[in-house]
Write a protein that binds this DNA or RNA. Structure first.
Length: 117
DNA sequence: ACCTTGACAGAAT
DNA sequence: AATTCTGCCAAGG
């Protein structure tokens, strides 16, 4: 789309994150890869940090975005309990207090679209 | 206007 | 095998 994508990189991140199905989680790298910029994983997280967050649209399920270890990286900025409880509430399996089971709940943004769960 | 930081990931040393 | 450094983009100081 046009040479100037003023649609901030953030917006692209939002578009993907918002598509994360309930009860699923994805990683920064997966989102970045879907955007075509695998190296921007850090910006993805940073985007969420700068993201509108809750209460605004698009609603950003930042809690469904974790690092490749499945660890809730953003718990510090979110208030760890909120992220963890929210994920558990959606049915995400945890292998540790602040670590989700990527083996069971990993969602790949590319191609999966939003299938019924 | 310049430099540093930022919720990561992967390649290099 | 573990640690270091780079890559990418944007915003804050």
């Amino acid at each position: 789309m046009s040479k100037s994508d003023r649609n901030s990189y953030f917006k692209r991140v939002y578009e993907v994150v918002v598509r994360i199905p309930k009860g699923k989680v994805t990683t920064y790298g997966a989102v970045a890869a879907y955007l075509g910029t695998v190296n921007d994983a850090r910006m993805v997280g940073w985007a969420l940090s700068s993201a509108p967050g809750f209460g605004t649209e698009p609603y950003l399920p930042c809690h469904r975005v974790v690092n490749k270890f499945g660890d809730l990286s953003g718990k510090a900025s979110f208030g760890g309990d909120i992220m963890r409880e929210r994920l558990q509430q959606e049915g995400v399996s945890f292998v540790d207090e602040f670590r989700v089971d990527l083996e069971r709940c990993f969602w790949d943004p590319s191609g999966e679209s939003d299938k019924k769960q």
